[in-house]
């Protein structure tokens, strides 16, 4: 039984005169992992950012078409964008930790969202960090400045931090790009685990990873959604020539 969680209709995105997405229509299913693949600059990040309305922070952004979550158009005037972003969490492509302690980074969202009980916050932090495979490395130095961590550790901390808002939908923009095989495996495990509760969209440049973790895969090219299907189908028997070329590395 599949439930459509996010429905995108004829979505086009512009940054000033540059068109980043061209009439994309897609249905993303709840409690599934959807992978987004495609060459650099094809609009993967732009697509993710329309789902939590982060594109609006970019000067010159315009869009056409609609995005519905649970059948509600999130671009309606009466939508509270701040609450939308608590519902739709995002792990950004590049690490963007605050120049504060590890603990403050992790406690930021819970505090902002009004959790006062120190014990609840601490438990939440331990839980999310364990899931993001970073707890063992940081549990004894939570007071250290987060920016002193290695790039891979920072990336996992960003994932843990995104989990602290306990979102409904999680957008992950290349969450494992800087990770070693062991941490990557753990993050993939995490994604597998999270889909019981969340709907997950992952952008990745790693084809094996997309094949391993996702239920559905969308292939974007030049701002267009070229093919969208079950991962097993798309990887073994793509119906579009461009998809096949991309998957086999014969591109351009």
């Amino acid at each position: 039984m599949r439930k459509v969680k996010i429905k995108v209709n004829e979505l086009s995105v512009f940054f000033n005169f540059l068109q980043a997405l061209n009439r994309v229509s897609i249905e993303i299913y709840g409690n599934k992992v959807t992978a987004i693949i495609g060459p650099s600059g094809c609009g993967k990040t732009s697509f993710l950012r329309t789902i939590n309305r982060m594109n609006e922070l970019i000067i010159g952004f315009r869009k056409k078409g609609e995005v519905l979550i649970d059948n509600i158009n999130i671009y309606n005037n009466n939508i509270d964008v701040v609450n939308l972003r608590r519902l739709v969490g995002m792990v950004f492509q590049s690490s963007n930790l605050f120049p504060k302690s590890i603990y403050e980074n992790l406690a930021f969202a819970p505090k902002i969202h009004g959790i006062k009980d120190q014990k609840i916050i601490d438990e939440l932090i331990e839980e999310t960090c364990t899931k993001a495979a970073i707890w063992e490395e940081i549990k004894d130095r939570l007071e250290v400045n987060a920016l002193t961590l290695s790039a891979g550790q920072q990336q996992r901390l960003c994932i843990a931090r995104a989990l602290t808002i306990q979102p409904d939908i999680l957008l992950m923009d290349e969450p494992a790009s800087m990770l070693d095989p062991i941490s990557t495996a753990k993050i993939e495990e995490l994604i597998f685990d999270l889909k019981k509760k969340y709907t997950i969209i992952v952008v990745t440049h790693n084809m094996q990873q997309a094949a391993r973790i996702s239920d559905f895969t969308a292939f974007f090219y030049l701002g267009q959604l070229v093919e969208y299907d079950k991962t097993t189908k798309l990887f073994t028997n793509p119906s579009n020539k461009q998809t096949e070329d991309y998957l086999t590395g014969r591109f351009g």
Binding site: N52, M54, L57, V82, N83, R85, R86, G89, M90, F92, S94, N96, L97, F98, F108, A109, I112, H113, R161, A162, T164, I165
Partner: peptide, 22 residues
């Protein structure tokens, strides 16, 4: 930097919370 504001807004902080806390 912009990415600091984006990080905060992305965690569901309001504009004023972002200004005040980040």
């Amino acid at each position: 930097p912009r990415n600091q504001r984006i990080a905060s807004l992305g965690l569901g902080a309001s504009k004023w919370q972002t200004i005040k806390n980040v």
